Simulated scan of single mutants.
Amino acid sequence: MYNFKNDYSEGAHPRILDKLIATNLVQQLGYGEDEYAQEAKAVLKEKLSNQAATIHFVSGGTQTNLLVISFLLRVHEAVISAKTGHIAANETGAIEATGHKVITTETIDGKLRPEDVAEVLAVYALAPHVVKPRIVYISNSTEIGTIYSKDEIKTLYKFCQSHQLLLYMDGARLGHALTAENNDLTLATISQYTDVFYIGGTKNGALLGEAIIFNKPELATDFDYAIKQKGAMLAKGRILSIQFLELFKDDLYFDLARKANTLAMRIATAVREKGYTFLTQSTTNQLFPILPKKIIERLSADYQFYIWKNIDADYAAIRLITSWATDEEKVTAFIKDLQEV
Rank of each mutant, 00 (worst) to 15 (best):
P133M: 02
P133R: 04
P133A: 08
V136Y: 08
N140L: 05
S141K: 11
G145R: 01
T146K: 01
T146P: 02
S149T: 14
S149C: 12
S149M: 07
S149E: 03
T155C: 09
L156D: 04
L156W: 04
Y157E: 07
S162G: 13
H163M: 04
Q164F: 15
L166A: 05
Y168K: 01
Y168D: 06
A172C: 15
A172I: 15
R173C: 04
G175Y: 00
A177R: 09
L178R: 00
T179Y: 02
T179Q: 07
A180I: 06
A180D: 07
A180Y: 01
N182H: 03
N183F: 01
D184H: 02
T186G: 12
T186Y: 12
A188I: 13
T189D: 15
T189G: 15
Q192D: 12
D195S: 09
V196H: 02
F197A: 08
I199K: 01
T202R: 07
T202C: 09
K203H: 10
K203I: 11
N204A: 05
G205S: 06
A206E: 11
L207D: 09
L207R: 11
L207G: 12
L208F: 15
L208E: 14
L208V: 14
G209I: 00
G209M: 07
G209R: 05
I213L: 04
I213M: 03
N215C: 15
T221Y: 11
D222L: 11
F223E: 10
A226E: 10
